[in-house]
């Protein structure tokens, strides 16, 4: 069963406006998900409207990714934004509570932020599927 959800691609410049509109409609902040793709980052901001899920998506370049903080709209976003910074090395400008890279103490710095295209993995496709 596919859950009911919408996903809207927006330009980075329209992020604050888009999130503000979600807030005005009474959305509850659900999550921010960053994904490192080959050559770029993808951020998904999800909001809940009483069971219906609406997401906004922005793309960031791989080099020097910067995104404005949405803390002025949703104060609770600071954990997600620090996570984005600590794991993906995405600079979030104007965070309400900035841990300066100390939210997660990982051995490998910015462990998730690898945007190089993955080397062709020698994955055997013949793994037997389970019944």
């Amino acid at each position: 069963m596919k859950p009911e959800q919408t996903l809207e691609e927006i330009p980075l410049a329209g992020l604050l406006e888009g999130v503000g509109a979600m807030r005005a409609k009474g959305g509850r902040m659900v999550q921010i998900c960053a994904t490192a793709l080959p050559g770029q980052f993808e951020l998904t901001y999800s909001f809940d409207f009483d069971g219906r899920l609406a997401s906004l998506r922005v793309q960031l370049p791989a080099s020097d990714p910067r995104v404005p903080s949405i803390a002025s709209i949703y104060a609770c976003a600071f954990l997600y934004e620090n996570e984005m910074h600590d794991l993906f090395n995405i600079k979030v400008e104007g965070m309400a509570l900035d841990f300066h890279g100390n939210l997660y103490n990982t051995t490998v710095k910015y462990a998730f932020g690898d945007t190089k295209a993955p080397a062709a993995k020698p994955q055997a496709a013949a793994v037997p599927s389970v019944a």
Binding site: V30, Q31, C33, T35, A36, L37, T44, A75, C76, F78, L79, K121, Q123, A125, V127
Partner: peptide, 25 residues
């Protein structure tokens, strides 16, 4: 959040646990 590109391994797997959302409160 699960994103897959047709390989045996998923591309992105992201979990937002309930406590993560309740911490600000």
């Amino acid at each position: 959040c699960v994103k897959a590109n047709g390989a045996r391994n998923l591309q992105r797997f992201r979990v937002r646990t309930p406590t993560f959302a309740n911490l600000p409160a």
